[in-house]
Design a binder for these strands. Structure first.
Length: 255
DNA sequence: ATGGTAGCGACGCTA
């Protein structure tokens, strides 16, 4: 089972890229963040032609998550207990016996800001719910745009980024709390090139200079870690004309 | 000191 995550930064703008990538990569599941598309405008028909069904939770202008899959999704959840949030950032679904939780984690803007407080509160509530998901579903994948670089090696310039947003100790502790539920960062199960990133700022030639961060993650429960065969960052879509600022991350699990 | 670009929807907000 091939499972991928990709923050597309507007599905309406990026649909040609998504279709091109699906045709070539043929993942079983693609979790998408930042669709920026209301449900009424979700491109169901185009994706169906490509061989994918979709579940989605969209809103106007911002956020929005979706899960595309070759097999139909069941047990779809978009809202969790204790988090009364109009922002569409969560989509859980079951696919061929695997529980997939797609997260578009709050960015947080700046350490100490209101948005930062919202990020940490959001993460705490999501983590409490993930604990229940982990208990209910031994085969669990939690993936998406985490807006947290797990370690300094996931940051192109750890000195410059310091303890700022996406790198601050409270954010990293929040990610650790999720991993403490028994979820491992599948990318680090394997040997990887140094300076492997999944997001590069559009500004200041970020991609050209490989000034990026690894903030798009695929976490897996022990039952899936045991059968995880690979986790790779696919850089190519970031080289295409008018790309998303993120590129796909793909994990393969046996069976 | 706080740039640079992209997307959305009306010149600012978010990332």
């Amino acid at each position: 089972m091939k499972i991928a995550t990709w923050n597309v930064n507007s599905l309406r703008v990026r649909l040609p890229h998504v279709l091109q990538w699906l045709a070539a990569a043929q993942p079983d599941v693609l979790a998408i963040q930042e669709t920026k598309t209301v449900d009424e405008q979700f491109p169901v028909a185009e994706l169906e032609v490509a061989g994918y069904s979709a579940v989605f939770a969209g809103q106007k202008t911002y956020n929005g998550v979706a899960v595309l899959s070759k097999s139909p999704a069941t047990e779809v959840v978009t809202d969790i207990p204790g988090l009364d949030d109009p922002q569409r950032r969560i989509l859980a679904a079951t696919l061929d016996g695997v529980r997939v939780v797609n997260l578009y984690v709050v960015n947080g803007a700046e350490v100490g800001s209101d948005k930062y407080a919202y990020k940490l509160d959001w993460l705490a509530k999501v983590t409490a719910w993930l604990q229940q998901q982990a208990a209910a579903y031994p085969k669990l994948v939690v993936l998406g745009d985490f807006n947290i670089a797990p370690q300094d090696r996931d940051v192109h310039d750890p000195v410059a980024w310091g303890e700022g947003i996406l790198c601050s100790p409270p954010e990293r502790a929040a990610l650790q709390a999720i991993q403490a539920l028994g979820l491992q960062d599948t990318f680090r199960l394997f040997e990887q090139a140094e300076k492997s990133f999944s997001w590069w700022d559009y500004r200041a030639g970020g991609f050209r200079r490989n000034h990026g961060l690894r903030i798009d993650l695929i976490l897996a429960s022990q039952a899936l870690v045991a059968v995880c065969q690979s986790c790779v960052i696919e850089r190519e879509p970031r080289t295409w004309e008018k790309p998303s600022d993120h590129t796909p991350v793909v994990a393969v699990f046996a069976e």
